[in-house]
Design a protein around this nucleic acid. Sequence first.
DNA 1: CGTGATATTGTTACCGCTAACAGCCCAATT
DNA 2: AATTGGGCTGTTAGCGGTAACAATATCACG
Lengths: 339, 339
Amino acid sequence: MTKPTPDPRHALTLRDVSEASGVSEMTVSRVLRNRGDVSAPTREKVLEAARALGYVPNKIAGALASQRVNLVGVVIPSLSNMVFPEVMTGISEVLEGTGLQPVVGVTNYLPDREESVIYEMLSWRPSGMIIAGLEHSAASRAMLARAGIPIVEIMDIDGEPINHAVGISHRRAGRQMAEAIIAAGYRKIAFLGTQMPNDFRAKKRLEGFEEALAKAGLTLVDREYYSGGSALLKGREMTAAVLNRTPDVDFLYYSNDMIGAGGLLYCLAQGLDVPGRIGLAGFNGVELLDGLPRKLATMDACRLEIGRKAARIIAEAPEASQVEELFPTLQPGDTIRQA
Amino acid sequence: MTKPTPDPRHALTLRDVSEASGVSEMTVSRVLRNRGDVSAPTREKVLEAARALGYVPNKIAGALASQRVNLVGVVIPSLSNMVFPEVMTGISEVLEGTGLQPVVGVTNYLPDREESVIYEMLSWRPSGMIIAGLEHSAASRAMLARAGIPIVEIMDIDGEPINHAVGISHRRAGRQMAEAIIAAGYRKIAFLGTQMPNDFRAKKRLEGFEEALAKAGLTLVDREYYSGGSALLKGREMTAAVLNRTPDVDFLYYSNDMIGAGGLLYCLAQGLDVPGRIGLAGFNGVELLDGLPRKLATMDACRLEIGRKAARIIAEAPEASQVEELFPTLQPGDTIRQA
DNA sequence: CGTGATATTGTTACCGCTAACAGCCCAATT
DNA sequence: AATTGGGCTGTTAGCGGTAACAATATCACG
């Protein structure tokens, strides 16, 4: 033991490791990054010293010097609705092998908050950004466009992307569901969804849905909105409200699976004949539905694949902008009459 | 050859803003950070120039120079089980006002992965770290202990914290639930839970549970484990398996609410008398339960409050280590007989 | 044994920003 | 008028690494 206690309060730097191992800082840096040739014995010496000291490199300094940051910003509206965790899984999965690391920011569907999250993230000079949605404030779009890094807008492709986009057409998804419902013979259709004015994708689905209804000469017979609270419970309550107000309704289209699940449980508890007397459908294809007594009709939003593809674009940083459209599949489940 | 037009792709620096506004870089820095005195007209000029250029400060350089990083690392095992998003909410809520910003890392319950996530985070020199659980590899503990920043281990307090801890006693929680079940007159009790060997908190709950059973002269009449897949569905399946194998079981204790909910739906579908013929209980107090046809007995894990308190500790960085124990409340719901 | 090629290690100059301190200007004070 | 003390702005010297290049050691070969 040379130094009894080399000031434990002093933060370790490359210099400490370099002194401990008797080589230059540069060589230590090379060993720790596995870059450039270093002789085997030197490498060992350095690694040993670093391990013994418990040295953790300072990426702040490293990033500044190398002008390279292995971070990818991911901006999403919420973590609590089961949809984004799966997107994250896809992203992490692909980034894993690239040395890139995702950093998540949550906006709670607030444009102002989104703007500040983006600003904050860009100030760390990430290698790329993945952002949910195509709708952003002018300032947000400007910042992203100027950042000089690949930007991927995910989930949605109905609009003008800043750079790249990966997602599905929610308008088309809504239309498809409506067509399937009409084809199954339902005519008195109601919509139940969130109140959130900034959930543009839910809004687009509804637009597509109504568009298809109109084409068939139909209009929604009722609609019910909610905000906040337990989605499952809200689903029950909203369903009760609609059934009460519009007793002859024969189909309930929910803007997401969670409230759809609540509605399904309610209908079953009421002893309603599903899908004979009344049909139901949600949106997202969440795993949760597998455990329900009856499988809710839904449309898978390709979340995993969206995450994967977005990450792949960031990793490859292609010159040309690209828009990847994915096509959700309708899962009829047990809550739509089979024709 | 000089540049005729100042390359618009050239990354902006303080210097660009300083030139555009005719003051020194230092003054620009002061304006943008709101630090030190700057005259009103100068401030305006600078802000105007910064806005016009679309300048985003480089925190990497700033952090290196000031030796200050406004990041707080949060290391959690998973995002998909509804429990951590709520902890995150509590953390964000408190950090909001402090200028600190959470950065999340996910370990998937893998110790190796936890180690590398911690290493990665520490290399950004955060102002503090919040980590789920008290069980970590020796290397992880060493890194954290040496980092010279406040460390808060959350969720659990049954063990030796590295620095600070905020959580509940899972052992005690298990014990309490067992006592309530026994008091309600149930005697043939089965456990249904996850297989994950690294979910130490679930393990501790089970230990406490069995301990209390033993004290009453009882042992589990059956147990069933699962891993992966849709928790709700697994809950159904496991419940079916147990009821089949051990027909006279009169209570099912689930390691989390999600499988408990699946079990509850199954029991109701089978027409079993709940809680008369058979009782059920879960753990966590997830919002989801509010929407179920009958309310599952559970124990709230104080997740929001844990997040808040942990963040508060980081923000205040107290000298002395502190351990905050929270006390979960038992919510009997409708699935335990009332004595 | 000299020579160029190759392998390994060191030196220097920043990266973009901020702490600390230095300077300047001008009103107020003596 | 000289002095003083704020208020405001500029200068200098890093922060802890890394790119690029320089230097030295080593080695094969004619």
